[in-house]
Design a protein around this nucleic acid. Structure first.
Lengths: 196, 196
DNA sequence: ACCTGAACACCGTTCAAGT
DNA sequence: ACCTGAACACCGTTCAAGT
């Protein structure tokens, strides 16, 4: 049940579906979605690949389970920490700093962005994005923007965030350092979040 | 040498490396990077997969060749059409409308964004992004912004573009229609491109 | 309830032999 | 100069048999 990794030799008994799902998530964080393969995972868990199919009907089902697990945790941590903040501008700012600093969750999000190719990844990322987008839109409305303005602004802000992650993944040279990152986030918020 | 597709039965003679590269590009546009597989391509081209290895040392080499081909074409069409435009603001606007409307090139770009997972894709996308980013930065400088302002603004604008593409790929419901897309681009430019 | 081991399909890769 | 056909490795999947 624990969300922390349980590595190879550390187990005594037999495995559960959850163990496989967690191993898959760890693999995504370490080496990306493509690295989630039955044989290597079985090796890592110290069993034969045949046993995998007692727990899941397919590799895809494992991926889906792992991603659902991630989705639940990320939703709870992100929105759980945001709800108590009353001021909409503060909340917008908090969303970005949170999402940029929650380390492991953030690493996995980046990996998923890279693997949008995969049919199991798309719906999860889609739901997460939609939730965040709705949240941003609502906050902009509370901050006094009209319906369409709020929608456009939310889309622009979230696109700026996702695109920024993408750029950081893309650029070989010129990847940003921590300070520069903070400066950029400041610029983004100053430009896109209404200060009135 | 032609950049248009040459389908299966239409060829008489034997194949060249270029034929394989073009077939790979077509495949990317149709079904994504993952669909570039030797056996299916061989089937489509009407030969056995063994013959592929006369032209390329590996599947990866084919991908690299296909992507280089795309990179060259996209660079020529995009920047070729932009250079003659004197006003920097006009040029910024032109970059976005161009990049959003050049159909096939744009489809491939989207597919590559989804496959950033793949080691052959990253460097190409990285170079293209870097070129566009430099271009935006230069235009903002010409439009009168300071060095850091121009950098931030360019990054933000390009991130907004890339992120927007990502969002459109991600959201199951609520994918934007043509009119809505134009309205959003207007909003983005109005917000991010200085009008002075 | 969970695991092994052997089997098969699919795709990447190699290579000797064909034209 | 380009292609075939058979072979092998790797991974996903199945399944009968084990504990």
């Amino acid at each position: 049940m624990s969300l922390t990794a349980q590595n190879k030799q550390e187990r005594t008994g037999r495995l559960s579906a959850d163990d496989w799902a967690q191993a898959a998530l760890d693999m995504i964080a370490e080496q990306g979605v493509a690295a989630v393969a039955v044989e290597p995972l079985a090796r890592r868990l110290g069993v034969t690949k045949g046993s995998f199919y007692w727990h899941f009907p397919s590799r895809d089902a494992l991926l889906v389970a792992a991603l659902e697990r991630w989705e639940k945790v990320e939703q709870e941590t992100v929105f759980g920490q945001l709800e108590p903040i009353p001021d909409p501008r503060e909340r917008l700012r908090a969303l970005f700093t949170l999402v940029a600093h929650e380390f492991k969750s953030h690493v996995i999000y980046s990996e998923l962005l890279k693997a949008l190719d995969h049919p199991a990844v798309q719906p999860v990322i889609g739901r997460v994005s939609e939730r965040r987008l709705d949240y941003l839109t609502a906050s902009f409305r509370q901050a006094g923007l009209s319906r369409t303005d709020a929608q456009h602004r939310a889309r622009l802000l979230y696109a700026a965030y996702v695109g920024f992650l993408q750029l950081n993944l893309q650029l070989h040279q010129a990847r940003m350092q921590h300070d520069e990152f903070e400066a950029y986030v400041e610029h983004m918020m100053a430009t896109l979040i209404p200060s009135t």
